[in-house]
Simulated scan of single mutants.
Amino acid sequence: MARTVRMRALQSMLAPGLGTSGQPCATDARRQVMKPGPKNSIADVAGIKVGNASDPLAKTGVTVLLPDAPLRAAVDVRGGGPGTRETDALALDTLVDRIDALTLAGGSVYGLAAADEVAAVLGARGQGFGLIPGVPVSPIVPAAILYDLANGGEKGWGEEPPYRRLAREALEAASDDVSLGAVGAGTGATAGDHPGGLGTASFLSSEGYTVAALAAVNSFGSPYVPGTDSFWAAPFEIGDEFGGRGMPERAGAAGFPPDTKAAALARQNTSLIVVATDADLSAADLKPLAVMAQDGLARAVRPAHGPTDGDIVFAVSTCTKEVPQPLMTLTELGSIAGDVVARACARGAFAAEEKS
């Protein structure tokens, strides 16, 4: 008898949609009406804006995530080829746990200069981490880059790569209207043997929290089921947000999909992702949120997290909604984050496909 009571209590805690009889309860009805935010974008997390700038001749670009107030942040890096700035500052034992902006860019190592411009502009505005009155503040602007140097664009920029200019343009363009496809950091991206791009998606949790993602998809792996135009992320699609194509009747085992990047292009990858929420999670909680969100890339692209990818997920929070039960809420938000990332990746590839 005691064992039965304990099992029912555990069931109730882990599966709040079930009553002690194991049958669906009212929570199921609530979950069935969960939906994306009004914009189905990362801008559904109030206080976050996104700016994009592209250089169509160079086939590259910059995306800036600009919050109204500093964001709490963490990061998770997978794969063998990452390119980053200030991700060490997001470790749990460092001095700061807030960031003033995030920069995503093409251009490989050259694209890291975009964050220099963002830091300079924000510093001039007085935004940043300050210790001593009268001394310039230090804006915290982590950044990550993807490889688009060999995509056929004009890259003969000599000693003046365009990334500082593009960063300033992206800052000036920041708004809550987030473009999709071959824009910003996704301008020159490729996903396997297909166009990549910038995608975004959002979701409202059963507890009223918003979880959203922004993804610049530039992967070795493919977002498509082999031999079809169906997305691997199809099981997570809401409505027809990336074409409503569904899954083939039999997708089969992917093995090593034939539409990955050719051997000559195998090192020209990395997908950049930002997951945002309004749930007031600590930096220690945002780290596992980023880890769980990485699963979304594996749901959307095959293969993922390989030795030639440098897949990076930033997890950020505006910290505006209290979280009474952090453990269970984090588990739910992490699960949602994986699905949202998968949808954002597919939306980016779908939008780029339509424009190609």
Rank of each mutant, 00 (worst) to 15 (best):
V5P: 01
V5D: 14
A9K: 08
M13W: 11
A15S: 10
A15R: 12
P16H: 05
G22T: 10
A26V: 10
A26L: 10
A26I: 06
A29W: 04
R30P: 04
R31E: 14
R31C: 12
R31N: 13
P36S: 11
G37R: 06
K39E: 11
A46T: 07
V50Q: 11
N52E: 14
A53G: 08
A53N: 09
S54F: 03
D55N: 09
P56C: 01
P56N: 03
L57Q: 13
K59T: 07
V64C: 02
P67N: 03
A69Y: 07
L71A: 02
R72M: 04
V77C: 03
R78C: 14
G79N: 08
G80L: 07
G81A: 14
P82S: 14
P82H: 15
P82W: 12
G83I: 05
T87Y: 14
L92E: 15
L92I: 12
D93W: 15
R98A: 00
L104G: 13
S108N: 04
A113F: 01
A114Y: 03
D116L: 11
E117N: 06
V118K: 00
V121R: 15
R125K: 05
G126A: 02
F129T: 03
F129N: 00
G130S: 11
L131W: 01
P136M: 02
I140N: 02
V141G: 02
P142Y: 01
I145W: 00
I145L: 02
L146R: 00
Y147W: 09
Y147S: 00
Y147L: 12
N151E: 10
G153K: 14
E154R: 15
E154H: 15
G158W: 09
P161V: 08
R164I: 07
R164A: 11
L166W: 14
A167M: 14
R168C: 03
A173P: 11
S175T: 04
S175K: 01
S175Y: 08
D176M: 08
D176Q: 15
V178W: 01
A182S: 07
G186K: 11
A189T: 15
A191I: 05
H194W: 03
P195E: 00
G197F: 03
G199V: 10
G199F: 04
V211H: 04
F220S: 06
G221N: 07
P223M: 00
A233H: 10
A233N: 05
A234T: 13
E237N: 12
E241N: 11
G244N: 04
R245P: 00
G246R: 14
A253M: 15
A253Y: 13
G255C: 09
K261R: 06
A262E: 04
A264F: 03
L265Q: 07
N269H: 06
T270N: 12
L272D: 00
T277G: 02
A279N: 00
L281K: 05
V291Q: 11
A293D: 09
G296K: 11
A298Q: 00
P303S: 05
H305C: 05
T308E: 08
G310I: 07
V313P: 06
V313K: 05
F314P: 04
F314G: 12
V316K: 07
V316G: 09
S317D: 09
T318V: 08
V323P: 09
V323W: 00
P324M: 03
Q325K: 08
Q325E: 12
L330S: 13
T331D: 10
E332H: 01
I336Y: 10
I336H: 02
A342M: 13
C345D: 08
C345I: 15
A346I: 09
R347S: 10
A349R: 06
E353Y: 13
